[in-house]
Amino acid sequence: MTFTAADQHIDELGHVNNAVWIGWVQDIAVAHWMAVAPQQHQDAYVWVVTRHEVDYRGNIKVGETVTAETFIPDPPSGARFDRRVDFRDAAGKVIVSARTTWAILDKESGRLIRVPRDVAAPFGF
């Protein structure tokens, strides 16, 4: 996905605010889930963030664009799945990198569950 910095994304330092980066992490994570997970999984489960770990190596200003790439680096552990998101600037350099941990909930009960094998399978596990 690509993201372009708009006026509302900019902080007092003149570049994208850290909270905006986290929002973009969530946007691409949700888009990945919606693109890969079968509809029956989307209907049955919801993911919640339990941890964000972000490395900031650069930033962008109004009108500049980044390209985001996401992937699941490791198999699930219990109810949790880690996700990586790398944001690259126009030169292709990774300027922000995030590792986030998501936990799966059963929508009907609202409770954490172990990541079912059939849920992990479309993501390569």
Rank of each mutant, 00 (worst) to 15 (best):
H41Y: 12
N59S: 14
T70C: 14
D11W: 02
V119I: 13
A31N: 04
R88G: 10
P38L: 03
G78W: 05
V115N: 05
I60L: 01
A120L: 13
S109E: 10
K107M: 15
G23F: 03
D89R: 07
V62R: 12
I104Q: 03
K107I: 14
E64C: 08
V62G: 08
V54P: 01
I113R: 09
V85R: 05
I10L: 03
R117K: 14
H41Q: 12
R99C: 14
R88K: 15
G23R: 03
A120S: 14
S97M: 13
V16R: 00
D11R: 02
L112I: 09
H52D: 00
T50M: 11
S109D: 11
L112A: 08
T100C: 00
V20H: 00
N59C: 07
V48N: 03
V30R: 06
A44M: 10
R80A: 12
E53M: 08
Q8N: 14
V66Q: 00
L13H: 09
G92A: 06
A121H: 13
A90F: 04
S109F: 07
H41I: 13
V115F: 05
F71V: 12
I60F: 02
K93T: 14
K93N: 10
L13Q: 11
I95C: 02
E108S: 06
P76M: 06
A6E: 10
V115K: 09
D89K: 09
D118M: 04
A90P: 06
V46G: 07
A79I: 09
P122K: 11
A37Q: 06
A91F: 05
I113A: 11
A37G: 13
I10E: 01
W33D: 07
K61F: 04
V20W: 00
R114K: 14
V20P: 03
R84L: 13
L13D: 07
T50P: 05
Y45L: 07
A90V: 10
Q39H: 05
F3I: 04
Q42G: 12
Y45P: 11
Q26H: 13
D11I: 05
Q40H: 15
E64P: 05
V96G: 00
G124K: 12
Y45E: 07
T2W: 05
Y45H: 10
Q42C: 13
V30L: 09
Q42N: 14
A44L: 06
V94Y: 01
T65D: 01
R111K: 15
F71A: 15
P122Y: 11
A37R: 07
S109H: 07
W47Y: 04
Y45I: 08
D74H: 13
R83N: 09
S77V: 15
